Amino acid sequence: MARPEAPQRFRRVQALLAARLAQQVLQVWRELMDPAKVDASWPAVRAALMPLVRQAREQSAALARSAYLDARRDAGVGDVGFTPKGPLPLLADRLEAALDVTGPVEFKKAIAAGKTPQQAIDTAAVRMVGSTQYLALEGGRQTMQRSIDADERATGWARVTDGDPCAWCAMLASRGPVYKSAKTAGDPRRGGNTYHDHCACQAWPAFTLDEPFIGIAEKLYDDWLRETRGHGGKHAVNAFRRWWESEGRSAYTAPARP
């Protein structure tokens, strides 16, 4: 029997990892970046950031591998004969490009828009934290998703979010358990394994065809049905988003920070 608290515990641990990375990124950015000499100071900043992101990505993947095996055991499947899949390699070109775009490029865009150097530093910092967290947490997310896809005993997955998701994540979480064999054609909430910068969501494996909803997902499902009644496709998505941003989000209580 799966432990009902395990998915949220896994999400919180990944959130702690992301928070630690954010602190490290901000420290490097503010200590080494010279707003008066952006191009000259940037190579040292980037060189310091790259190993931090790679290390966090490896840690995220390790946490996911351990959690996946725990989920298997809790479901009565066991952990013999299956090895969780690791994430895809993080190519240097991709990491460098992500840092460049959210670092000096974002800083220069902010200056061009009329912001002060300090404001530009802060603006770039927010973008950089989001991007680096995404690449780091991708390690665990890919580990979960690739393991689910490769595991013959896994039936699918559920999206686990906190109590204060954005409209997009709330919509995807409302799907509840998504089965590998399920047909999603015509369901505007397809793509449940997609994420964005500053996203707190994680995937959790399912091993039966009658998996319970996780966390707030069941209430979100009821909300989705109610708010999208009479709409389809992108019109349903827009109707849910309008409701979520105007009144829906306030109906959910965000949990304490991890």
Rank of each mutant, 00 (worst) to 15 (best):
R12G: 01
S246G: 12
C201G: 12
A120V: 01
A47N: 12
E152G: 15
R94M: 08
S181L: 10
F107T: 00
K108F: 05
M33I: 04
E5F: 11
L135A: 06
A200P: 10
Q119R: 01
K180M: 12
K234Y: 08
A98M: 03
A251Q: 15
S174E: 08
M171W: 11
G78F: 05
Q27K: 09
L26D: 07
G139L: 08
C169L: 08
W42G: 03
Q119A: 01
A173L: 00
R57E: 08
V101L: 13
D210K: 10
E247P: 00
V45P: 02
W244V: 07
R189A: 13
P7N: 12
L220R: 01
E138I: 07
V160G: 09
D197G: 10
P51I: 11
L32V: 03
W224R: 00
W224V: 02
V126Q: 02
E218H: 04
P35N: 05
T116C: 02
I111G: 04
D34E: 02
R3C: 09
F82E: 01
D79M: 10
R12M: 13
P87D: 04
H235R: 15
Y134W: 13
E138F: 02
P117E: 06
T208M: 01
T253H: 13
R54N: 04
L95I: 02
L26C: 05
I121T: 03
R241L: 09
P205F: 06
A112Y: 05
E227I: 13
M50E: 14
A203Y: 09
V178I: 15
P177S: 12
W29D: 03
L99S: 00
V160I: 15
